[in-house]
């Protein structure tokens, strides 16, 4: 069973603990600008939206890579950037229509969510259950659509989010 990050933006409070967990896991420091997940703040709409790669089936980034530096893990479906092969050409960053693979100027390579080898730090760090890691079998655009519909439902005011119990 494939697992995916499921995002319920209605529960997000904008605390950015996910961004810190992500950057710490991947960079060894707290640095939200290097986070693979990012929370967008729709201030006037009273909504915060965490956003990251859905590991889409189309694998636009992988298709665009000239040197095979992005591959799909057969078991998890995760698209992984192999830093030793990435030449930093950035074509994947313009090819990904979700904008979820980004250039890291300090390493000269690209970075994207790889679900932390099956234990995403962001989901673990989220205090409100806005980001969860769940079994789901859908293709990239289906994932996006379901994400969108969840998010759209969430656009009804759901009231304040309280922290939920963590495993």
């Amino acid at each position: 069973m494939l697992k995916a990050l499921v995002i319920d933006s209605g529960k997000c409070t904008g605390c950015k603990q996910c961004e810190m967990a992500c950057s710490y896991e991947n960079e060894g420091e707290f640095n939200v600008s290097k986070s693979r997940i990012r929370v967008f703040d729709f201030h006037t709409e009273a909504r915060m939206v965490p956003y990251t790669c859905t590991q889409c089936a189309e694998a636009w980034c992988q298709q665009a890579c000239p040197v095979n530096a992005i591959t799909t893990d057969a078991a998890s479906g995760v698209k992984i950037v192999h830093e030793n092969l990435c030449v930093g050409c950035k074509v994947c960053t313009i090819a990904c229509p979700f904008g979820t693979i980004n250039y890291n100027a300090s390493t000269g390579k690209v970075i994207k969510c790889d679900l932390c080898q099956g234990n995403p730090a962001c989901a673990d760090a989220c205090p409100t259950g806005a980001i969860t890691f769940q079994d789901i079998e859908q293709t990239g655009f289906d994932k996006m659509r379901s994400w969108a519909s969840v998010a759209a439902k969430g656009s009804e005011t759901s009231g304040p989010s309280t922290p939920t119990a963590k495993h």
Partner: peptide, 23 residues
């Protein structure tokens, strides 16, 4: 980026998530 998330991801008030033309 706000516009993208809002429109393409159907998060906030704007056009419906799937435009009439579809992706």
């Amino acid at each position: 980026r706000e516009a993208y998330i809002s429109v393409a991801q159907g998060v906030t008030h704007g056009a419906p998530a799937s435009g009439a033309s579809g992706p």
